[in-house]
Design a protein around this nucleic acid. Structure first.
Lengths: 233, 233
DNA sequence: GAAAAAACATTGAAAATTCCATGTTTCGTT
DNA sequence: AACGAAACATGGAATTTTCAATGTTTTTTC
């Protein structure tokens, strides 16, 4: 990661400014700007680390991140959810006193603003409706994790993998053709099954004409079939 | 459920008043009281229903509730988490615009205050620190759901059931001996496995001297063994 | 307090899923 | 271009988990 000069940082802050100034004044927003740093993260780098004390709230300007839980006992990872820019991240961290439940890791190169929690909190104290708006955005990510939980808990392998690919198309890549930035192993960690399951299911789907892929280039050719699999399993 | 007169309601509101008046004035709290109704729910009754528009925030004065997700496709239920009084429930509902993700259902007789979301929101607008405090409390329940998710995703049957019973002892009944208010089926819905798994595992544990039970009376006699099972699986 | 319903319990067969072994391809580095 | 490492791929054995059938006990309801 590398630090940029302040001017560049301000130019890139526009997304967050737009959201924020619906609720707070430009003067107040300047306080946030002063308490923020702009950072670039390479694919694979950890943005917020599981177990650390939450000191910052993050705004994802561009890129894709995963919410990754690493089991302390075995070496297994679980991807709770995947998020693409622009979004407020780690809002939950701000509202907890506890340590971070999970890590936030870049799965593609990311541009991020880290804002000091203390400065943010000062502002929220006097702007309840801004606080509520931020909570709502932060809650979205919880909601997505819970939806994934429900999928994992109720459905079996193939339906879960279908859910993952529907989610990728609808909420991450915004289209049925995309360059997949996740490895098979990461998809397995997201759908909570083994890598072999992912590989075999994808091969099967390719034969059945539901998806087609070569290397990282993916296309979902029959998303309605995927929706059917998601329902019927 | 039956409605009580206002006086009784006020007397029972003390828990929520105590929390709230750390952040807001007594005058302001009176506005909440006016917008609240006191209700009793019998075991099995639904307090907030999945799919409904969230119009109220709930304060659980006494009793135990489950966060229950009912699958629209098959008839399967999943218990996301279990919560015992006193707690703020459905805070998430307040911070969402979406419909309720899950139902909140009494697993023991409950005393509940339902507060109009609109009145609450008016108050939060001018009291950011109260908003933050409420959100922190509401987030706790999300956190518990996520922890359950992680257990379900990473561990197998026996370790998950161990997690459920450790959770019951530590966070619901506050002791290792208790009158279990969940059926075997509900435990299965919580640990995400079949009823047979629950029954067989409990029988095995009883033979091994880890738990002892007859009917609804339960005692965990060796919680350290349960912790070991939770880790090693 | 009797009948019905729900909950609890046990077993073996069937199905789903992971584990293991092995081989190929792709990617990044020197 | 050669090398090693990581990712991708395949198939069968071993394991875990659910399903199905059946019976007992407990709880609820009239």
């Amino acid at each position: 990661m590398n630090f940029l000069d302040n001017k560049d940082s301000k130019d890139n802050f526009s997304g967050f400014r737009k959201i924020s100034t619906l609720f707070i004044s430009s003067d107040e927003f300047r306080k946030i700007e002063k308490a923020a740093v702009f950072l670039r993260f390479k694919k694979g780098e950890t943005i917020l680390k599981q177990g650390h004390t939450p000191t910052h709230i993050a705004y994802l300007q561009s890129g894709i991140v995963k919410f990754n839980f690493q089991s302390p006992e075995n070496e297994k990872n679980t991807i709770l959810t995947l998020v693409s820019a622009p979004k407020i991240l780690g809002g939950a961290n701000l509202f907890y006193k506890d340590n971070n439940l999970f890590s936030i890791v870049a799965v593609e190169d990311c541009e991020i603003f880290l804002i000091e929690a203390g400065a943010m909190y000062e502002l929220l104290k006097d702007n309840g409706n801004y606080a509520v708006a931020l909570f709502q955005m932060a809650s979205e990510m919880f909601k997505k994790s819970i939806l994934n939980f429900i999928s994992v808990a109720n459905k079996q392998k193939e339906a879960r993998i279908a859910d993952v690919f529907i989610y990728l198309a609808e909420e991450i890549y915004f289209g049925t053709a995309f360059k997949l930035s996740l490895t098979r192993k990461e998809i397995a960690e997201f759908a909570c099954c083994s890598v072999e399951n992912i590989i075999m299911t994808l091969s099967k789907w390719q034969q059945e004409g539901i998806v087609s892929f070569s290397g990282k280039n993916f296309e979902i050719t029959d998303i309605e079939k995927l929706r059917y699999i998601s329902k019927v399993g």
